[in-house]
């Protein structure tokens, strides 16, 4: 029997009812995150990366709602929980780091107040114990002189330092899963790597899994164990990060990889995918990528591709590989 994954997302559908009909922002997305694993989630803006994260932690903003599928945490459904049990899961079992550290912290409370409040919400302990834990946490995320700086307000810290504080807050109650939604996008390039390292190290140390949402393939390559590629709210490809980067199978992923500059590259121009991602109210029939795909076939315009297993660890949603599978079956 296979081990139960820490998080299992099954056929997730997220919809936004609007006056002009219901918009389907996430359509039939499935993936697992194993214990201690780092799953990277890439895609363009609007592909549904952040929405997937919000759906998992139960913070979809109305009128957005989960319209189908299920989300399981250690085998237990959490997508249909009532508000109060779901609140207990947030912070305690699933932590979240947001994009902009400048706006993630409440400006009117000191770092100590926010950390202690979070710790004491989930763990029953005295103020003094919580404070010691908070100092240890700040120290661990790399705030120099944590004991002295803990009583400072957020505006006393730089962007990179604030993101460290945010990470400390997200990890305060030792969650099993940390959803990091573009944790470095708003930061200086020089501190991005440090923040990713801190996040990765601490999570590894505590055995916490990470779902790393980003549009930066470089970050994924260095950090993630596996990567999931989203396009127009649908999963295009998922697999071990090394395989996907070295031999991308979905034409969209291939395009993404072609648009990353490398040092050894001799061409002067980067490859660009023609066109842009469809709007939610105009997703084409069949494969959503078909108008931009260089390998488009007749079938792609009518039938939506299903996820096709490629080896034991990879899956890709593209009709190009259906033929291959059939050949294997017949041969």
């Amino acid at each position: 029997m296979a081990e139960i994954p820490l998080l299992s997302v099954r056929n997730l559908v997220v919809e936004f009812p609007s006056r002009r009909g219901t918009l389907r922002a996430i359509d039939d997305v499935s993936f697992d995150i194993a214990e201690g694993e780092v799953l990277g989630m890439v895609g363009e803006s609007g592909a549904g990366k952040s929405l997937t994260g919000a759906a998992i932690i139960g913070l979809l903003e109305p009128p957005g709602r989960i319209a189908g599928g299920e989300i399981l945490l250690r085998g237990e459904r959490i997508d249909n929980l009532a508000a109060e049990p779901m609140r207990r899961i947030r912070g305690k079992r699933i932590g979240m780091v947001f994009q902009d550290p400048l706006t993630s912290l409440n400006p009117l409370y000191t770092v100590a107040e926010q950390l202690i409040e979070t710790i004491r919400t989930h763990i029953s302990c005295t103020e003094r114990v919580a404070r010691e834990r908070a100092i240890a946490l700040l120290d661990r995320v790399g705030i120099p002189a944590a004991r002295r700086r803990i009583d400072d307000y957020p505006h006393h810290f730089s962007g990179g330092m604030r993101q460290r504080v945010v990470i400390a807050l997200a990890l305060a109650a030792e969650p099993d899963l940390v959803i990091a939604d573009e944790p470095t996008t708003a930061l200086d390039v020089s501190v991005q790597a440090q923040i990713i390292d801190v996040l990765k190290e601490i999570c590894a140390e505590r055995g916490a899994s990470v779902m790393l949402i980003t549009h930066d393939m470089g970050v994924i390559a260095e950090t993630a164990d596996r990567v999931a590629v989203l396009y127009a709210g649908r999963l295009a490809e998922i697999g071990p990060v090394r395989d996907v980067i070295q031999a991308a199978e979905h034409p969209y992923t291939q395009g993404l990889m072609g648009s990353i500059p490398t040092l050894t590259q001799t061409d002067t121009r980067l490859v660009q995918i023609p066109g842009s991602m469809p709007r939610l109210d105009a997703i084409p029939k069949g494969c959503p990528f078909n108008p931009r795909c260089p390998h488009v076939m007749d079938r792609c315009r009518h039938d939506r591709p299903v996820l096709i297993a490629r080896g034991s660890k990879r899956e890709v949603a593209c009709w190009l590989y259906e033929a291959v599978r059939e050949e294997v079956h017949h041969g």
Binding site: R87, R90, G91, M96, T103, N106, P107, T118, T121, A170
Partner: peptide, 24 residues
């Protein structure tokens, strides 16, 4: 964002509404 983050940390509605939102 800080209200969203306060919710993501699992703070109670009471703490989010009256501790964080009202003061601001």
């Amino acid at each position: 964002d800080y209200i969203k983050f306060a919710r993501a940390r699992g703070l109670t509605n009471r703490a989010v509404h009256f501790g964080h939102a009202l003061k601001n």
